[in-house]
Amino acid sequence: MKAAFVGKGGSGKTTLAALFARHLRTLDDTRALLAVDADINQHLAVALGADAEVAAMLPALGDHLYDIKEHLRGDNPLIASADAMLKTTPPGPGSRLLRVDEPNPLYDKLVADVGGVRLAVTGPFAADDLGVACYHSKVGAVELLLNHLVDGPGEYVVVDMTAGADSFASGLFTRFDLTFLVCEPTVRSVGVYRQYVGYARDHDVPVVVVGNKVEDADDVAFLRAEVGDDLLCWMGRSGFVKAAERGRCLPIADLEPAGVAALETMRAALDEQPKDWVRYAGQAAEFHVRNALAWGNARAGEDLTRQVDPKFTLAPAPAEVR
C-alpha cells in the first residue's frame, strides 16, 4: 500500500510520516517498507533519526534521473530512449517493474537505511537550481518509481510530500492508495485541507484527515466541524512528538498509548483501501498524455503519447498475493 503525507507547512506532516513509517517497521505483518522524502524541505531523514550531516550526504533521486529512466524502460519497445521518458512515462511491455524491497541497482545506489527504515530522498533544491529549475523536475523521479512499483499485502511505501497544493504540479498526487492530510486546529490549516480535497476528489484520490497538535476537546470539536467525516484520528499532547519536533528521536516504544492508537487507526484505514490497478494505470496514462501534449512532444520531437499501452496494468500475479 502506498501512503502520502500532505498538509500546510509546519503542520507536522514530516514528523507524522516518520512516526508512521517507524510504527509500520515494528509490526510483525509488515513484509516490506520504503519511505520517500519528496518534500522541497528535506527533513524526513532527520525525523527518522539521522543527524543533519548524515542526512545531507544521502544520495538524491533527483541527481540520478537518467539512471532511473534507463533502468525502468528496460526493453519496452514503446520507449525509444531514456531521453524520451518524461516524469509521467507509464510502464508497458518490457519495462522493468519494481517491488517495495528487492535487490536491484537503483535501490543499491539510492536507498539507505535510516533508523531501521529504508529511505530514498529526492534531494534538496540546490543553489545551482535557483532561477533555472523547477523542484518538481526532481520529484519526477518519485513519480517514475511509483509508476513502475508493484506492492502487495503487508508492503508499504510512505511518502512525505511537498506542503500545501504544490503536490498538484504533477500527477504524483494520484499515485497513492490513501493520502493522510495532516491538519492543525486552525483556520489556515483547514484552508489547505479544503483546497487539497477540492483537487484530489476530482481525480478519485482518497483523502483522510489526521489532526495534529490537538490540545483539548475544543480542538477536536473544531476539526470535526470543519472537516466532518474526513477526520480519521488525531495526535494529542505528546512529549514524544514534542521531542521529535525538537530533533530528539526517541525509541518508538516510548510513544504514548494514544499516539500508538492513532497510528494503528491510520494503518487500518490504509490496509482497508481497495487496490484498483486499472484506475492506477488510467491515471498514469492521463497525466502522461497531458504532459506530452503540453510540452513533452515538442521537447522530444516525437509523439510521446504513443508510449501508453492501454492494455498494460501493474496488477501482481495471483501467486504473489499472499
Results as ranks from 00 to 15, higher is better:
His64Met: 08
Pro251Leu: 06
Arg22Met: 14
Arg25Thr: 01
Leu86Tyr: 02
Leu110Lys: 12
His136Val: 15
Gly296Glu: 09
Asn297Ser: 12
Val187Met: 10
Lys242Pro: 00
Leu250Trp: 08
Ala292Pro: 04
Ala21Asn: 04
Ala300Cys: 11
Thr30Lys: 08
Ala300Lys: 09
Met161Tyr: 06
Leu16Tyr: 08
Gly10Cys: 07
Glu256Trp: 04
Gly282Ile: 02
Thr305Lys: 13
Gly301Lys: 07
Ala32Val: 10
Arg25Asn: 15
Val54Arg: 15
Asp229Arg: 14
Gly191Ile: 07
Ala217Leu: 14
Asn212Thr: 01
Ser11Trp: 01
Glu302Gly: 05
Ala38Ile: 04
Gly154Ser: 07
Lys213Leu: 12
Lys213Asp: 02
Asp129Tyr: 04
Asp67Ile: 00
Phe287Thr: 11
Thr313His: 12
Val208Cys: 02
Leu98Met: 13
Pro77Met: 03
Phe173Gln: 10
Leu110Ile: 11
Asp309Gly: 11
Asp129Arg: 06
Ala133His: 15
Thr30Ser: 07
Leu106Asp: 03
Asp67Cys: 02
Thr179Asn: 07
Gly92Ile: 04
Leu145Cys: 09
Gly116Tyr: 10
Pro310Gln: 06
Ala4Phe: 14
Asn41Glu: 15
Leu144Met: 14
Gly247Ala: 06
Ala21Met: 05
Ala45Gln: 13
Arg201His: 13
Cys183His: 04
Phe180Trp: 07
Asp108Lys: 08
Glu226Met: 13
Asn212Asp: 08
Gly94Glu: 11
Ala261Lys: 11
Ala84Ile: 02
Arg201Asp: 13
Asp202Leu: 12
Lys213Val: 12
Leu19Ile: 01
Glu245Phe: 05
Leu98Asp: 10
Gly171Ile: 12
Tyr199Arg: 15
Asp160Thr: 07
Ala285Pro: 08
Leu110Thr: 03
Thr89Ala: 05
Cys249Glu: 09
Pro185Ser: 12
Tyr193His: 13
Val321Thr: 08
Lys109Glu: 14
Ala84Tyr: 03
Asp128Ile: 06
Gly164Val: 06
Gly296Asp: 12
Glu155Leu: 02
Ser95Asp: 11
Phe173Met: 03
Val6Trp: 03
Leu145Gln: 09
Thr89Val: 05
Val132Phe: 10
Lys8Thr: 10
Ala32Met: 11
Ala244Phe: 02
Glu53Lys: 13
Val121Tyr: 01
Phe312Arg: 00
Arg73Pro: 11
Asp51Val: 10
Gly236Phe: 07
Tyr199Asn: 05
Thr14Cys: 08
Leu97Tyr: 03
Arg299His: 11
Leu58Val: 10
Cys249Ala: 13
Val159Gln: 04
Ala82Arg: 09
His23Asp: 13
Thr162Val: 15
Asp202Gly: 10
Asp303His: 08
Phe240Ser: 04
Phe173His: 14
Leu48Met: 11
Val241Cys: 09
Leu145Phe: 06
Leu178Phe: 10
Val36Leu: 12
Lys275Met: 10
Leu119Val: 01
Leu98Gln: 12
Arg248Trp: 05
Trp277Cys: 07
Lys311Ile: 00
Arg25Tyr: 01
Phe222Ile: 02
Arg96Ser: 03
Ala294Gly: 04
Val150Met: 13
Val220Ala: 08
Glu264Gln: 15
Glu272Trp: 00
Ala319Thr: 12
Gly9Gln: 08
Cys233Tyr: 02
Pro257Glu: 07
Val159Met: 09
Leu255Thr: 06
Leu110Pro: 09
Gly152Ile: 10
Glu272Asp: 15
Gly228Thr: 03
Leu33Cys: 13
Leu72Cys: 09
His136Ile: 13
Ala200Pro: 02
Ala284Ile: 05
